[in-house]
């Protein structure tokens, strides 16, 4: 009975998300669209709370903590500082995905006894979530001018180093996913993915940063969808995948509006320059 109610509320939430997003694409309907999407989120959260059986105090602490940090930081931020704030909010979302995947690994005592697809979706979520978290922090640091805005990196050696990090992270993901009970692989996965996120974003110049933030936003959406598959939660699958898909298109459109291509931006080192590298 309760499960049915939760599902029905989730379906209501999907409708509100999609209506809200459609509103956000037009100048006249955007404000209302945002509110409709927020209402959808409220419905989804309340529906999920109906299913909570244990640990109410901890959950309430987490919710209050998040609200107490989120509202003032969103209210106080200057209009000119909006992009880095979005980066930061995107980052914590990715961080949440990574942490949830890690806790899943811990509570199931490794993935030995879980279905393969759950393990695969979890390690994917952990990898992308960690990349998104650390990449977003670097993007925030650059736009906030905590870090220098100019490209930082190893120049021509950047791509091989990034590739090495990706391979290392994927290797750890496979080892963790195959059911080793040792947490080391999971932690190493998060660490390598973190280094990868930092290394990919550091060489990108400040001017290209909004496109990068949009790309990381799409990635967080995908990782949320993966976490949803692992948990069998349809609301996470739908909302995460919608963001993953629409975020990818939006990233492409933003790059095109700047006369750039996404691969050229991610290849890095040319940020702010008008030269279009031959990467494709």
């Amino acid at each position: 009975m309760m499960a049915t109610l939760v599902t029905v509320l989730y379906i209501v939430a999907f409708g509100l998300f999609i209506t809200g997003l459609m509103g956000l694409t037009g100048p006249k309907t955007a404000v209302r669209g945002n509110k409709i999407a927020a209402l959808g989120m409220a419905v989804a959260v309340v529906a999920t709370l109906l299913r909570v059986e244990n640990n109410w105090p901890l959950i309430v602490v987490g919710l209050i903590l998040g609200t107490a940090v989120g509202i003032p930081s969103a209210r106080r931020v200057k209009m000119t500082a909006m992009p880095q704030m979005v980066a930061l909010f995107n980052g914590v979302g990715g961080g949440a995905v990574a942490l949830i995947a890690w806790s899943e690994f811990r509570t199931s005592g490794g993935f030995a006894d879980t279905a393969t697809y759950v393990a695969a979706a979890s390690v994917f979520a952990a990898l992308i979530g960690s990349v998104s978290f650390w990449g977003s922090l670097i993007a925030f640091g650059k736009l906030q001018e905590i870090l220098p805005g100019r490209p930082i990196g190893f120049g021509k050696r950047q791509q091989p180093v990034n590739l090495l990090m990706l391979v290392a992270a994927v290797a750890c993901a496979v080892l963790a996913g195959l059911g080793g009970a040792s947490q080391a692989w999971m932690i190493l996965l998060l660490v390598f993915a973190a280094v990868l996120g930092v290394m990919v974003v550091l060489p990108i110049g400040g001017a290209d940063m909004p496109v990068v933030i949009s790309l990381l936003n799409a990635l967080t959406g995908l990782s949320a969808a993966a976490a949803g598959v692992a948990l069998g939660n349809t609301a996470m699958i739908v909302a995460g995948m919608i963001v993953g898909a629409s975020g990818s298109i939006l990233t492409n459109q933003m790059a095109l509006a700047m006369n750039r291509t996404v691969p050229a931006i991610v290849a890095g080192g040319f940020g702010g320059g008008g030269v279009l590298p031959g990467a494709g």
Binding site: A30, A38, G62, A235
Partner: peptide, 30 residues
């Protein structure tokens, strides 16, 4: 509308909150 839309979709992937609620809500004696 690029930046507001990015920000709006960004808020929607906050749906990951549900994952935390589900996992912690089912866990006994964490």
């Amino acid at each position: 509308l690029h930046t507001p839309l990015m920000s709006g979709t960004n808020a929607i992937h906050g749906i990951v909150l549900l994952g935390g609620l589900v996992v912690l809500g089912e866990l006994r004696d964490p």
